[in-house]
């Protein structure tokens, strides 16, 4: 971005650049990049938490095992409560989404790290996966009755075509908002932290800047969890629409 006369350097977007990990400029399909690295770390974190944490299978759980059980119970209850009892077979799928997003978000909070969930490439694929799954499940489970989702029978007949168009648009906007919400939140938070970090170059305001970065990181920790939670619960809400399309 801009370099003004005072020497302030704002490069809030540089942290989102995809770079090959082992030199070179070209990013091909199979190039090992920082995306690969941080996604692999997310996998390691998930394995450490869910597999290594529970390896003793204790009746009285250790700390690590309680965390894993807490995550399990949290998502299981969410799927059951929001999407209904028959959605439990999608539980591993929802759990996969939640664990990946929450781990990627938290890993992104580390200094110098790369936040994979701030990339539209990642969130769009995640959201499209949910969208396609929900649509396919909806049609397989309910057949054409799934289209009743767009035909609001509780509304007056004259209004129904209009409502159908609105419902149809809102249905197709879902993956857009679903993906942009996640990436946008993460990107905004990280960019703001970087902007505050830029102000730290001025000696007079650097203490305020450091305090502000600390506060922002606290907020970002909250956002990292809440966005993973929101992404997951919206997945459950969409699944409920697919399984029980009546309003």
């Amino acid at each position: 971005m801009a370099v003004d006369k005072s020497g302030l350097v704002f490069k809030p977007m540089d942290q989102f650049v995809v770079k090959p990990l082992f030199g070179g400029d070209h990013v091909g399909l199979f190039t090992v990049t920082n995306v690969t690295f941080w996604m692999a770390l997310a996998v390691v974190a998930v394995v450490a938490m869910m597999v290594l944490g529970t390896r003793r299978r204790a009746i009285v759980p250790s700390r690590g095992q309680s965390v894993a059980e807490l995550a399990y119970g949290f998502i299981y209850k969410m799927v059951e409560d929001v999407a209904g009892k028959d959605a439990v077979k999608f539980f591993p799928y929802v759990m996969t989404l939640f664990m990946f997003i929450v781990m990627a978000n938290f890993l992104g909070l580390l200094p110098m790290s790369f936040t994979t969930t701030s990339q539209f490439a990642v969130t769009v694929v995640l959201a499209l996966m949910v969208f396609v799954t929900v649509t396919v499940v909806g049609f397989v489970k309910n057949g054409t009755a799934f289209l009743g989702l767009f035909w609001v029978t509780s509304a007056p007949l004259a209004l129904r075509p209009v409502l159908a168009i609105i419902e149809l648009i809102s249905y197709f906007v879902r993956p857009v908002s679903h993906s942009i919400r996640l990436a946008g939140n993460l990107m905004a938070g990280h960019a703001v932290v970087k902007v505050f970090a830029g102000f730290a170059a001025i000696a007079a305001v650097s203490p305020i800047s450091v305090v502000a970065i600390t506060a922002m990181l606290g907020l970002e920790t909250l956002v990292a969890f809440i966005q993973a939670y929101v992404f997951t619960i919206l997945t459950c809400v969409y699944l409920k629409d697919a399984l029980h399309p009546s309003h």
Partner: peptide, 22 residues
């Protein structure tokens, strides 16, 4: 590139979760 690695990541996490952890 990102989508390729994302899919691999998701498949690995899914397999680990559904086969072992859950």
């Amino acid at each position: 590139n990102q989508i390729f690695w994302l899919l691999i990541t998701l498949v690995v996490i899914y397999l680990v979760l559904s086969r072992i952890a859950l």
